[in-house]
Amino acid sequence: MSAIVDSSRDTASVADAARGSPSPQAKRVPGAAFDPIFKALLYICSGLILVLLLSIVILLFWGGWPALSHFGPSFYWSTVWNPVTEKFGAGVMIYGTLFTGFLSLLIALPMSFGIAFFLTEIAPLSIRKPVGMAIQLLAAVPSIIFGMWGVAAIIPLMANYIQPFLKLVFGHVPVVSYLFAGATSGFGMLTAAVILAFMVIPFITAMFVEILEAVPPMLKESAYGVGCTTFEVFRNVSVPYGRTALVGATMLGFGRALGETMAVTYVIGNANRISASLFSSGATIASTIANEFPDAPAGSLRNQSLMELGFVLFVISFIVLAISRMLIKSGVK
């Protein structure tokens, strides 16, 4: 009879658990009363991130709206930026931001692929760890340090050796001569792109390594089994398998390059003009804001134009990062 009673109690406990009713033992778990408080704190912390993001968007949009209303849509492609006459346009800054970003990717991608190939396919474990740690340390270097290094080391190198060499070799080639025209001062778009390339290489390389290590070993071993070399396995197996994610990682590095400020400000020359020459000075959205925002009175048309520049940079960065996350998510299974 007691066995039947115990069985019926067990059955009732199972039924209560199925209905979501806590058992008497669960009610007596120490700290269970704090679970709702802990969950509420987690919701608050997550909500603060959304509130912060939304407040930034509203601040930039609302602060720049008067300038956009004053100049109209031509603000986005106008190349005039004159605080004296209070005529402002974002064309030069948008061009400089996108141009230096794309140029930095052209420099960074081959190096990132080479480092990732070395770390995933060639380097022994005793070398892989120090090199991987060095990449992580390079990613932690502040932007202003890169700017100081650019002024002290890269600009003299560009002015005395690299720019004169490029002008001597390509300056008389009809198709590309316009890219290497002008004075070889060391400052300019090419120097800014070189600095940006060194800044984004650690991020792109780290993601490349993670993507390439996700390739199933069976695919690579099968390729080795039919006589493929290490480079052929990398080119025909590893890269095609993670192609979409690799493109997404590249876009993520591009988004990182778009928002860099101090390093670019030090070496780009900060001139409000558009030129096809890689040696010419220019400006980016971030460098213009860094240079002029402290001197722009609050509520002035100049301040409002800078706020609109910030909103444009936010939109561009958001689009690039959203595309990169979509590609990475679809490429890594």
Rank of each mutant, 00 (worst) to 15 (best):
V5M: 12
S8R: 13
T11Q: 15
A12M: 12
A18M: 09
R19D: 06
P24H: 13
K27Y: 09
R28W: 10
P30R: 14
P36H: 09
I37V: 15
Y43N: 10
Y43F: 09
C45G: 10
G47T: 10
L50N: 02
V57L: 11
L68V: 08
P73A: 14
N82G: 06
V84N: 01
Y95E: 01
F102N: 04
S104Q: 08
L105K: 04
I107L: 14
A116L: 02
A123G: 13
I127Q: 11
R128K: 14
K129S: 14
L138G: 07
G147H: 05
M148H: 00
A152K: 08
A152E: 13
I154N: 01
Q163R: 02
P164R: 13
L168T: 11
V169G: 07
S177Y: 03
F180M: 09
A181P: 04
T184G: 14
F198P: 01
I204D: 00
M207A: 06
V215L: 04
E221F: 02
E232Y: 06
V233M: 06
T244E: 00
A249S: 10
L258S: 05
G259D: 05
G259L: 08
V264H: 01
N270H: 07
A271V: 04
S277C: 11
I289E: 05
F293M: 05
P294S: 12
P294K: 06
G299C: 09
N303V: 06
S305T: 12
G310P: 03
I316F: 05
I316S: 01
M326R: 09
